[in-house]
Design a protein around this nucleic acid. Structure first.
Length: 437
RNA sequence: CGGAGCGUAGCGCAGCCUGGUAGCGCACUAUACUGGGGGUGUAGGGGUCGUGGGUUCAAAUCCCGCCGCUCCGACCA
């Protein structure tokens, strides 16, 4: 992409409403524009990041055996009346009446919808296990939206729903999602710690919030210090028993403040980390709550009808954009992890119109483009300082500066955004270095 | 939903108290110089002062209503 042909409305000054880093930087970097309280338009740069995150989530869900579907944003009230949640949900549910006077709602989640799909088509236990997910916009009419995209009213979420014959098999489904979440977040450059969460009326130990560490996190988190050294690189075969792997992770203490009791904490205070975090995912098993009320049963091996055991697994896709920024930025701007960066490399042509600089910048652009690295070429006629500050702000992982001074002896400057390190080298060396990570 | 604020040019703000020609910085347009970390000069464009009503000879300014947005708290992916 050439910057001269792009839409990147950068702000030099911070809009006063933005208090936390991610909100401030997303506005300044021209990623989003607020439409109304807690509702945002995604501009080209923001949309690119959102798509990157969404695709990582999608790939890992598919890898774990979940099947992608797409359910509607607008749902009929009848389904929610069946489950009893139409009355329970309260004012956070946005209710809509259509022209025929039918009660509809903008979905805050999709348990009812998926259960309706399941019960319409699945009759036998032989069709199990089944796990289906979608990535869809949701709406919760928060009393007080805040922190920009992090706690908006409209948000993009991945939610998966598993169906199994009994609780043991449901645990296997739960474990697959547990593991896939660790892998998903690791791919985004995040350390996400699964924390025991309240299981509500179901009880048991099958609910975890996945929380990333960030100073501005909304909840306090407490965990064993060994969490900081855990290696997630293990290659996972989802067809094997994942319990030992899950046990390895859940054996270490980790709880958010609502579940943490300082009086009865098993971790000695010297080993206990107390930091802040942002919830980016939540998985839980809820048994037959919806299958019983909504009649989602299958014939078991003995021919008798059995309500299926379900679990649901959410990832806040749009929230992750803000979460990653909270976890990765400095006073100059965003520092995107490579996997979610909107562009892989920025080429700064310091002197557009100069034949040599133009030719070199174009050549680099072609090389990176061919390599699938999604280069962004700054070909605007602007001050050098302004260009560099822009690229720092939008956080492109690599920057290559092509200028007349360097080109006199065939050198460009390569900068790594994360470390701030710069080095002069030949254009070819720069390409090699970037392509090799 | 309790408490507290704020709405004046695209963004950040002053002006309001004490009513009398709507301002500043950045951004934008043109132009010249400049050019390796957010340059300088010159000349420009852009505002029904959130909105409706009231008071007044006169309202951005005073009074009342409404709308929108933000912050703290309670609540939440």
């Amino acid at each position: 992409m050439r910057l001269s042909q792009y839409f990147l409305p950068l702000l030099k000054e911070t809009p006063k409403e933005a208090q936390i880093a991610s909100h401030r930087l997303m506005l300044r970097a021209g990623m989003v524009q607020q439409s109304s309280a807690g509702i945002y338009s995604w501009l080209p740069l923001g949309k690119r990041v959102l798509d990157k995150i969404e695709n990582i989530v999608r790939e890992e869900q598919n890898r774990a055996g979940a099947l992608e579907i797409l359910m509607p944003t607008i749902q009929p009230a009848e389904l929610w009346q069946e489950s009893g949640r139409y009355d329970d949900y309260g004012a956070e549910m946005l209710r809509i009446v259509d022209r025929h006077d039918r009660n509809m709602l903008y979905g805050p989640t999709n348990e009812e919808q998926i259960t309706d799909i399941f019960r319409a088509h699945v009759r036998s236990y032989k069709a199990l296990p089944l796990n289906m997910y979608h990535i869809q916009w949701k709406f919760r009419d928060e009393v007080r939206p805040r922190f920009g995209i992090m706690r908006g009213r409209e948000f993009l979420m991945k939610d998966a729903y598993s169906f199994d014959l009994d609780g043991d098999k449901a645990r296997a489904a739960y474990n697959r999602m547990f593991v896939s979440y660790l892998k998903t977040f690791a791919r985004m450059g995040l350390t996400a710690i699964p924390m025991e969460a309240d299981t509500g009326p179901i009880g048991g130990d099958m609910s975890h919030e996945f929380i990333i560490l960030a100073e501005t996190g909304e909840s306090g988190v407490f965990f064993h210090k060994d969490w900081m050294n855990i290696n997630l690189d293990a290659d996972i075969d989802y067809n094997t028993d994942l319990q030992p792997f899950v046990d390895k992770f859940t054996s270490l203490y980790a709880r958010a403040d609502d579940m943490h009791d300082p009086e009865n904490c098993p971790v000695p205070s010297d080993d206990l980390m107390s930091l802040r975090g942002i919830e980016i995912g939540h998985i839980f098993y809820f048994g037959t709550k919806y299958s019983e009320t909504m009649g989602a049963t299958v014939s078991g091996p003995d021919g008798k009808p059995v309500p299926v055991h379900m679990g649901s697994y959410g990832i806040g896709v749009s929230r992750l954009v803000g979460g990653i920024i909270e976890a990765s930025h400095d006073d100059k701007g965003i520092i995107w992890p490579d996997a979610v960066a909107p562009f892989g490399v920025a080429i700064i042509n310091l002197k557009p119109g100069d034949a040599i600089c133009d030719a070199q910048a174009d050549q680099l652009y072609q090389q990176f483009d061919n390599a699938g690295l999604e280069p962004l070429l700054d070909d605007r006629n602007d001050r050098p300082g302004a260009k560099m500050a822009s690229m720092d702000l939008i956080g492109i992982p690599w920057q290559i500066v092509v200028g007349p001074r360097g080109m006199e002896h065939n050198m460009v400057e390569l900068k790594r955004r994360k470390t701030g390190e710069t080095a002069e080298m030949s254009p070819d060396s720069a390409v090699t270095k970037i392509l090799n990570g």
